[in-house]
Design a protein around this nucleic acid. Sequence first.
RNA 1: UGAGCUAUGGUGUAACGGUAACACAGCAGAUUUUGGUUCUGUCGUUCCCGGUUCGAAUCCGGGUAGCUCAACCA
Length: 558
Amino acid sequence: MATETNEPKEKSLNFLEEIIEESIAKGNTRVQTRFPPEPNGYLHIGHAKSICINFGLAKKYGGKCNLRFDDTNPVKEDVEYVDAIKRDIKWLGFDWAIERYASDYFDQLYDWAVALIGKGLAYVDDQTQEQIRENRGTISVPGTVSPWRNRSVEENLDLFMRMKNGEFADGAKVLRAKIDMAHTNMLFRDPIMYRILHTEHHRTGNKWCIYPMYDYAHGESDSIEQITHSICTLEFDVHRPLYDWFIQSLEIFPSHQYEFARLNLTYTMMSKRKLLKLVQENAVMGWDDPRMPTICALRRKGYTPASVRAFAEMVGVAKRDNIIDLSKLEYCVREDLNKIADRRMAVLNPLRVVITNYDAQKTELFSAVNNPENEAAGTHQIPFSQVIYIERDDFMEEPPKKFFRLCPGGEVRLRYAYLIKCEEVVKDAAGNITELRCTYDPMSGSGSSSDGRRVKGVIHWVSAKDAVEAEVRLFNPLFTKENPDDVAEGQSWEDNLNPDSMVQITGYLEPSLRETPIGQAVQFERVGYFCPDLESTPEHLIFNRTVTLKDSWAKINK
RNA sequence: UGAGCUAUGGUGUAACGGUAACACAGCAGAUUUUGGUUCUGUCGUUCCCGGUUCGAAUCCGGGUAGCUCAACCA
């Protein structure tokens, strides 16, 4: 009886899940991943994808995901970033098995370097940075061997120890792996393992003046933590052979690296280095400026963690370069907010309306549902009086044929309140509309009308004397270029900055909006989703636009 | 001009030799106390050329295009 078509369709696996399931099939049932940020900046939506992948995979296969800070370069790193990163991961809804730092492994890493020297696989090089660069060759021409490459094990051991002891200045010497200066993979041309940096480290202080490079530290850290699946982005693909080389040379736990394509979003800059520059040059208000793609900025704008997770799920995981429509992210946010956000009325571009046959002294309260999609959300009261504001866009003196809202002689429903009819348009000397004079149907309060007529147009409004004035910020993409990361040579991001990325206006809000908690988005009817800003106070409300509604009425104008 | 990675609708992601699917965007319509939400319909010669096969997005050969790599960054 049960037909095949009714069977729930099995969700297909992404390539990482396939790799894991294959290894499980071979008997390797343990799954251990890690999320390894460098604490040199704030996490952004691209990291959110990586977090969802790493924590998601671990959860799906009954494994664990570690948080490991890749803090091998003290000149760029800071505890400020460590704290922010932890906060953002938690906000996204994930928790790590253990928290580690590459710097926890500095002693072990040093011992392993000594072992590699002992095996004749590493040597101390006295060449200058420039000489090393020149002798590395290029992509098509082989490198040149260092004159120091054949030092004895004893001499290397002695020199490396003295490097550690602080006998040499920054840049005087480096420790290099001895591999192949003619290798087609540039990373195999005797990669640098340690450099001298007389810099205080945010965790180890002044204990070390030599610091391991990424290639030497990362795989080993994975190995120490017995990571089974070390997942990173595509640009690390060329590093994998070196990752394997160190692990094999050291004969330690064989972690493996797998690469996926990083997330790109239209009109969004994703390069951490460039984002830092935006902050440093005050092009934005800070890392959590609502125009930034950082997780803390999304939080400030009122995005929900669930919507970001849904987005990560929706974009999938693959190995080809991609650029995802920003509309996809916004869809995920709206989808979530549609279900949970309360509706409120707010007028952002006010037009004064006087209801001539309504008692000037009177105030009525109308009951409005908080969320038509969720009855349990309840209702709230909205004051109504003789003078109200409506949206300027909701009135047209000469309406096109399919315009359903207010026009001279026309009638609309004020949401939750009366039907009103426009009797007169008041203009100033310059011909600008300054006020509408309308009459209302006293019998139309509960959704009915005195004679059973119905109108097609329903508009939002606020009572002028009860309205709360608030700063409302409308955010648009920071960049006009579809892919701002991809700037031409010699061109800077400034050329692509959108001058209208932030528009600040004064809005008139219904009084209940005073009680909206910071960071919680509500829907302003027909306008979009907004949430109170961090800097909002009861005396001075600031609302940020979270995301717009689908703007289907705009096309009626064109 | 070396090596590696990747090619499926406007954008993403599936299909694992058997009639190319899902989502977003777009377009059209229905419902609606907001034109939102919800619902329905619609949109493709799988980068190219050749081969294997009854049958190819999938396998093989050869092209082409895009991306990555020449920090004492990660």
